[in-house]
Design a binder for these strands. Structure first.
Lengths: 130, 130, 130, 130
DNA sequence: GTGGTCTAGACCACG
DNA sequence: GTGGTCTAGACCACT
C-alpha cells in the first residue's frame, strides 16, 4: 500500500491517510479482506506518530471501511463497493436537502451556496497540490 | 401576520406554518417581542385544527424562535437575528465541507453535485407552489 | 444435499438457501471440498429461479464458505471450521458487549433485554416453520 | 458537572467519562444546550490527560450526544430524550437480531448466549465497583 | 508480533 | 479563552 503525505497541506495528516485508503478501496487497489499495514509499520514508513495513524484507522473503522482486531491487525471490510457508492450518493443528497431546508427559512440565495461550494472546493483542491 | 397554507403540498401543514413564521422573523416582518396571533385565532383564520397550530408553535418555541407565556400569548423571541443567520451560514458551510470530503474519496464530480442541488431545489420550489 | 424452501417465510429464498448450506457445512453434513449441486440443478430441484440460487452461491462465496470454479462447479471451502465457530462466538460477544454498553448509560434493565431476546428468537423460529 | 473516575476499573477512562455524561444527559442532570466543562478544565479536574477527555468528547459528538465548536466549547446536543431512548431500544433490537442470525447458521444454543450475556454483564458490574 | 489506552507537552486556528 | 492536531514514548492485553 502506498500513502503519500504532504506536511504543508491544510488537510490533517490523519485525514490524508483516510482519503487515500478510501480511494484505494473504491478503486479495488485494496481488495476485500486484504490486510493493511500495521499502525506502527505505516507510522514508521511515512515518518509520523503511531497515534496519528491510529486515529485514521479508528475513523476508517467507524465509517465501515476497515475492521480492526486487537492482536491481529486491520483488514479491508468485506463491504459491497456498490453499497459504498450508493451510500455516498445518498449522503450527498441528504446534505443538500438539509441545506435547502435552511434556505427555505432564510434569505440566503441558492447562488450564494453554489458560490461558497465552488470556493470551498477550490480551496481543498489547491491544498492537495501543496 | 400572513400565513398561506397549501393542502396539496408534501410539506406537513405545521411545517409550512413554521417555515413561514421563521422566514418572517428573519426578514424582520415579525420583530422581536411582537405578539403572534393566538393559537385559536390562527387556526380559525387558516381553517385548520388548533392542534396543528399548537404543534408549530411548540416546535418554534423549542427551537428558540418564539416564547409562549401561559395565558398571555406567544411572542417573537428576543434572540439575536445575526446569530441565527450566522448559525445558518455555518451549518451550510459544514454540510458543504462534508460533501467535499466525500467527493475527494470518490469519482463523483463537482458538477454532478451542483446539478443535483439545482434539481432538488427546483423540486422543493414546486412543492411550495402546490 | 437437501434444501427445503418456504415461500411463505419472511426470510428471502436466497437467504434460506444460504442459512441451510451454512448450517450443513458447520454440522459436517457438507464436508470440505465436497462438490455442491450445480446452480441450474438446484434451481430445478427446488423449483426456483436460477438467479436466486446464483445470488445465494455468490454470497456464500463472498463470505468464504464455498469456492466456485468457472466451468467446474462450486465446492465447500477448505476453511477451518473451528475458525468459523470462533469468529461467530467472538461476534456474539462483540454484540453483547455493545448491548451492555448501552445498558450502562440507560435505565433499560438486563431482564428486559433477555425477554426481548427470547421474544425475537421465538419469532424467528416461527417464521422458519412457515 | 461531576465525573468520578476509577483508575482500577477495566473500563477505559474515556469510556467512564462517556458513560457518566450520557447518563447525566438522559437523567436531565445535563440539559439541552448546556455547556460542558472545557476539555482542559475537566482533564485538570479529574487529573487525567487532555487527550483522554478529548477522546471521550469526540465519541460523544460522533454519537450525537454533544456538539463541539472550535474556539467555543462543547454543548449538550438539542436532541429529544425520547429519541435517544428509542434509538437505544432499536439498537439493542438490532444487535439481538444479528445474534439470532448467527445462531441460525450455527450450533450455538440460545442458552449459551444468555449465559454469556449474564457473565459479561456481571463482569462489568463488578468493574464498576472497583 | 498486533492493537488499546494514556500521558505531558507542543503548536496552530478560531473567537 | 476555546478546540484541533501531532508527537514520542509508555504500559497493557490479545494472538
Amino acid at each position: 500500500m502506498k500513502i503519500i503525505i504532504s506536511n504543508n497541506s491544510d488537510i490533517p495528516i490523519y485525514e490524508q491517510i483516510k482519503l487515500q485508503i478510501i480511494k484505494q478501496i473504491l478503486n479495488n487497489e485494496l481488495i476485500e479482506n486484504e490486510i493493511l499495514p500495521s499502525i506502527r509499520l505505516l507510522a514508521q514508513d511515512i515518518k509520523i506518530s503511531v497515534m496519528t495513524v491510529k486515529k485514521a484507522y479508528d475513523e476508517l473503522e467507524q465509517e465501515g471501511y476497515i475492521v480492526t482486531r486487537q492482536g491481529k491487525g486491520s483488514y479491508v471490510a468485506s463491504k459491497n463497493l456498490e453499497l459504498i457508492r450508493e451510500e455516498q450518493q445518498k449522503q450527498i443528497e441528504d446534505y443538500l436537502t438539509k441545506i435547502i431546508d435552511i434556505l427555505q427559512s432564510s434569505d440566503i440565495k441558492k447562488e450564494e451556496v453554489i458560490e461558497l461550494f465552488n470556493y470551498l472546493y477550490g480551496d481543498d483542491k489547491n491544498e492537495e497540490c501543496n
